Amino acid sequence: MPATPSAPRPIALVTGAGRTRGIGAAIARDLAAHGFDIAFTHWSAYDARMPWGAQPDAASAITADITAAGARALSLEADLADPDTPHRLITQTTRHLGPVTALVMAHCESVDSAIDTTTPESFDRHMAVNARAAWLLIRAFARAFPGPHGTGRIIALTSDHTAHNLPYGASKGALDRITLAAARELAHLGVCANVVNPGPVDTGWMSPELAERMRAATPLGRLGTPADCANLVTFLCSPQGGWINGQLLHSNGGLAP
């Protein structure tokens, strides 16, 4: 008797998976372990100008982790400040892996500055990467979404940062509204859209002093891990997470406001 063909694996596009210890990479790995094929984006020019620096072997290492989980992987270098990039990402993923059913936006531009020290150029770049790219990704995803109704997922990662991180906080606020609007505007497609605030997760950007303050402000007495966020995202992408829609979820260990 011939074997029954297995159902095709769903396809997830995860943006912002440029470092092996980052949240985006953890999400890509966990979704792969739970049945998704994965396309992921990275932008080495951003990491190179940040304090942690570029990790040249990250894309190949993340690809190896995904394929070790039995999934197909597609690594895409992508500058999300370019308004043509979102459509290209959806098109390339569809061409190489298949139609995207889960869009997870973990990318960001994040350069600290305050009201008095932010430049118009920095503000515009934060808005382009964190807000405009999210809108264009959601639009491209929706236009190409294959169904069936109720299977689509959009998840964006956000933050509470505002003071002394003005352009980042402002652009993340815009990201929240854009993503939550998708829960209503894409209702005809049956796409669930949610925002996740992962709380204090140290992926290499925290000073020791900040890390200690965050631990002290969290009832569990620890920082979050990328896996903590990935676990929630994977649940939201699963059939069991399909009744959660239009929400901003705080997965932060009870961090004090």
Score class of each variant (00 low, 15 high):
Thr117Glu: 09
Phe123Thr: 05
Ala131Arg: 03
Phe123Arg: 05
Arg125Thr: 12
Ala128Gly: 12
Ile138Thr: 09
Ala134Ile: 04
Ile138Gln: 09
Glu109Thr: 01
Thr118Leu: 10
Ile115Lys: 00
Arg125Ser: 03
Val129Ile: 15
Thr118Phe: 04
Ile138Arg: 00
Ala128Arg: 15
Phe123Met: 15
Glu109Gln: 12
Leu136Glu: 06
Asp116Pro: 02
Asp116Lys: 10
Ala114His: 06
Arg125Met: 11
Asp112Leu: 07
Ile115Gly: 03
Val129Gln: 06
Asn130Ile: 05
Trp135Pro: 00
Arg139Ala: 09
Met127Ile: 09
Ser110Arg: 09
Ala128Lys: 05
Asp116Val: 12
Ser113Asn: 14
Cys108His: 08
Thr117Asp: 11
Glu109Pro: 04
Trp135Thr: 07
Ala131Asn: 01
Asp124Gly: 14
Thr119Lys: 10
Arg139Ser: 09
Thr119Ser: 15
Thr119Phe: 11
Thr117Gly: 07
Arg139Thr: 09
Ala131Ile: 06
Leu136Pro: 03
His126Leu: 06
Ala131Phe: 00
Asn130Trp: 04
Ala114Thr: 15
Ser113Tyr: 03
Cys108Gly: 04
Glu109Phe: 07
Leu136Asp: 02
Ile138Leu: 08
Val111Trp: 05
Ile115Tyr: 08
Met127Val: 13
Asn130Pro: 11
Asp112Met: 14
Ser122Val: 14
Leu136Arg: 10
Ala131Cys: 12
Phe123Tyr: 13
Glu121Gly: 05
Ala134Ser: 13
Trp135Gln: 12
Ser113His: 11
Thr119Arg: 09
Glu121Asn: 05
Trp135Tyr: 15
Ser113Pro: 06
Thr117Lys: 11
Thr119Ala: 10
Ile115Glu: 01
His126Asn: 11
Ile138Ser: 06
Ser113Ile: 06
Leu136Ser: 01
Thr117Ala: 08
Trp135Ile: 04
Glu121Leu: 06
Ala131Glu: 03
Val129Pro: 01
Asp116Thr: 13
Ala128Asn: 07
Asp124Gln: 14
Val129Phe: 02
Thr119Tyr: 11
Thr117Trp: 06
Arg125His: 14
Thr118Pro: 02
Ala133Arg: 07
Leu137Gly: 06
Ser122Leu: 13
Asp124Ser: 15
Thr117Gln: 10
Phe123Leu: 15
Thr117Tyr: 08
Arg125Lys: 14
Asp124Thr: 15
Ser113Trp: 07
His126Tyr: 03
Ala114Cys: 12
Asp112Ser: 09
Ala114Leu: 03
Ala134Leu: 01
Ile115Asn: 02
Ala133Leu: 13
Asp124Met: 07
Ile138Tyr: 02
Val111Arg: 10
Ile115Asp: 03
Ser113Cys: 15
Ser110Gly: 07
His107Cys: 06
His126Asp: 05
Ser122Glu: 11
Met127Phe: 14
Thr118Ser: 15
Leu137Tyr: 01
Thr119Ile: 12
Asp116Cys: 08
Thr118Gly: 07
Arg125Pro: 02
Ala128Ile: 09
Phe123Asn: 02
Asp112Phe: 11
Val111Asp: 03
Ser122Ile: 14
Val111Pro: 02
